[in-house]
């Protein structure tokens, strides 16, 4: 059985159909890449799956649990997490406090109000471990807003991973990164596949071809093609719509 399945997802904004009856599945341990030109509906799809936007129609199942209609926080509890295409961190807080807030979300109740959070050693340890994993340990005390762009992207992904998801939705984690940061992130995503399945939205085709087990192509809100790396690379329609423009552009 698939780890995650989306069935007939549909979303329109006024007259614009942004996601048009999209169905796909993610297998356990898989990196499933989702590619498509600008405006294809990739971010909208991620918003629908994470629950930040309400579905017009369709059904979502993760690990046997029906997520359709659940509020975002209950989807996270059932094992879904996401990062953001436009970096979304807590800019005024230090990297450490960012990580603590993400770790705290998963570990027990956030309604505790008598105990100092700083005294909770296990939270601290989880936060530090995350920082190490993402190479952010040298920047722990710096405010997130003043980090270099690449580090902000890493922090964004680190926050998403802190909730220990079964399925991680990554919306262009490499966006705007230099080659060095990109390579680090690709290596990191490689390692993550033992922890979680990943739905990877990405424009960087080199990274996609390196990482993906399967690729789905989205165009005008519809799934144009879906298959392994080789079949997508050679798919004529895909080349015309997407890879062709990418190669010439």
């Amino acid at each position: 059985m698939s780890l995650f399945s989306a069935d007939g997802l549909f979303k329109h904004f006024g007259g614009l159909v942004a996601v048009d009856r999209v169905s796909f599945a993610v297998e356990p341990g898989e990196i499933h890449a989702l590619i498509g030109p600008n405006g294809a509906g990739k971010t909208t799809l991620i918003n629908l799956i994470s629950g930040l936007l309400p579905l017009d129609a369709g059904r979502l199942v993760l690990d046997g649990a029906d997520l359709t209609g659940l509020p975002p926080y209950q989807r996270v509890r059932r094992g879904l997490s996401r990062c953001f295409q436009v970096t979304s961190v807590f800019g005024a807080d230090s990297v450490f406090d960012n990580l603590m807030l993400a770790v705290q979300a998963r570990a027990g109740s956030s309604f505790r109000c008598l105990r100092r959070r700083a005294a909770e050693g296990s939270l601290r340890e989880s936060a530090l471990a995350l920082a190490q994993k993402f190479g952010l340990d040298a920047a722990l005390d710096r405010a997130a807003a003043i980090l270099p762009h690449g580090d902000q992207r890493k922090l964004d992904v680190a926050l998403a991973l802190a909730t220990r998801p079964k399925l991680l939705l990554l919306d262009e984690p490499l966006a705007g990164m230099g080659p060095e940061d990109s390579a680090q992130m690709v290596a990191l995503l490689h390692r993550l596949r033992t922890e979680t399945a990943i739905l990877l939205v990405e424009h960087d085709m080199d990274a996609v071809f390196q990482l993906a087990d399967r690729i789905s192509v989205l165009d005008y809100g519809r799934v144009l093609a879906s298959g392994d790396v080789a079949s997508i690379r050679d798919h004529p329609e895909v080349q015309a719509v997407y890879l062709g423009t990418e190669a010439s552009g």
Partner: peptide, 29 residues
């Protein structure tokens, strides 16, 4: 004062600063 540095206090400020991200982190806003 204690509340402000407890889990609840941090969560509340997180929501003030970035509600969308807090929702995505799994907080019942």
């Amino acid at each position: 004062c204690r509340l402000a540095v407890s889990r609840f206090g941090y969560a509340l400020r997180g929501i003030r600063d970035n509600e969308t991200r807090m929702a995505a982190l799994g907080y019942p806003i």
